[in-house]
């Protein structure tokens, strides 16, 4: 008995079997809390389900039909695209400029890099609270600065036209350092010999930027563009803290609408919220695939 137990355990000590013990816990977690929910999203989106998890039957594709005629959803999609369309280019351009300028390792440049990264480690809750104070029309100092400069007083988060630009500015402020760090790592991995050769050929700084740095940086740059776009399509935190989707729903995004539909507004329609999630997933996958193909082609062209 004891011998068979020992030989049984010894069997698990063979690398090809022990491997399953090593991966089992992590894979179980991923299976249970990523794969199962992904499949379940598809299932729930075809059911009537409220936040008390009462399933009132299978309704097929009714939710998806409802998506098409939902004006509030269409607005949320427009707001999300507005956010992504402005925020992503701004963040990438600012990150690229600072990364190019700060990529050499001098003490001052290293210091600037570490400071620019600081907002990225702060929660959107805390910096959103700070931004709401700073931009408050009555008590905030930034509107007062504008007045001192002779510019019109802006209402920022309270003004339907300026709320989204304010959220965009806040997001760029917080996140450009994150992309910058990725791009600096990419720039630093470009061999110096490329630049030396370019200098021998008489190429100036600008020429070096467009002929060496940017083409060689394409993998990091495309990674930044794609991940920033994906994050922008899921924008929620900063809006939840600052404008809560207002004023006049002008900053309600897709994820905000999912949250409101499923968890905030009666009748807590989890089924319909899941259908919107499925739509968002398809959106994000499509954007990722298109961008990936575009960048791979660019990389191939440049090589």
């Amino acid at each position: 008995m004891r011998r068979s137990l020992r030989s049984y355990l010894a069997g698990w000590n063979r690398p090809e079997r022990a491997a399953y013990l090593f991966i089992a816990p992590a894979l179980a977690i991923l299976l249970l809390f990523t794969v199962v929910p992904l499949l379940a999203t598809l299932a729930i989106s075809t059911m009537n389900m409220d936040v008390f998890l009462q399933v009132k039957g299978f309704i097929g594709l009714d939710h998806f039909e409802r998506l098409l005629g939902d004006d509030r959803l269409i607005d949320a999609i427009k707001h999300t695209l507005y956010f992504a369309g402005v925020e992503v280019p701004l963040q990438i351009i600012l990150a690229l400029l600072t990364a190019v300028y700060l990529s050499r390792n001098t003490r001052w440049r290293k210091l600037l890099r570490s400071v620019y990264f600081v907002p990225s480690i702060c929660s959107f809750t805390a910096i959103g609270i700070v931004a709401s104070f700073l931009l408050d029309p009555q008590t905030g100092v930034y509107p007062a600065y504008l007045v001192n400069l002779g510019l019109p007083r802006l209402e920022f988060f309270r003004d339907p036209a300026w709320a989204m630009p304010s959220v965009i500015a806040l997001t760029v402020w917080r996140s450009f350092g994150y992309s910058m760090i990725i791009l600096v790592a990419g720039i630093q991995s470009i061999p110096d010999s490329y630049y030396e050769a370019a200098q021998l050929d008489g190429a100036g700084k600008a020429r070096q930027l467009f002929s060496i740095t940017i083409p060689m940086l394409m993998p990091s740059l495309s990674f930044c563009v794609i991940t920033t776009t994906i994050a922008a399509m899921q924008v929620f935190d900063q809006i939840f803290v600052t404008t809560q989707g207002g004023p006049l729903n002008k900053t309600e995004t897709i994820v905000g609408y999912i949250y409101n539909t499923g968890f905030k507004m009666a009748p807590y329609d989890l089924g319909y919220a899941s259908a919107i999630s499925v739509m968002l997933f398809v959106f994000i996958m499509a954007i990722t695939l298109v961008m990936n193909r575009y960048f791979l082609r660019r990389e191939a062209d440049m090589a």
């Binding site: 690398p15 090809e16 079997r17 022990a18 491997a19 399953y20 090593f22 991966i23 894979l27 991923l30 809390f33 990523t34 794969v35 199962v36 929910p37 992904l38 379940a40 999203t41 729930i44 994906i230 899921q234 929620f236 994820v255 999912i258 499923g262 989890l270 919220a273 899941s274 999630s277 499925v278 968002l280 997933f281 994000i284 996958m285 990722t288």
Partner: peptide, 28 residues
């Protein structure tokens, strides 16, 4: 470690990295 299914399972892990949390949150 060499074991059967190493590559397939690792590819699956990489695929789960691409699924945004917002899509999973209701079933979760």
């Amino acid at each position: 470690l060499r074991f059967k299914g190493n590559k397939t399972l690792f590819t699956l892990v990489l695929i789960t990295m691409m699924v945004p949390f917002q899509v999973l949150m209701i079933p979760l």
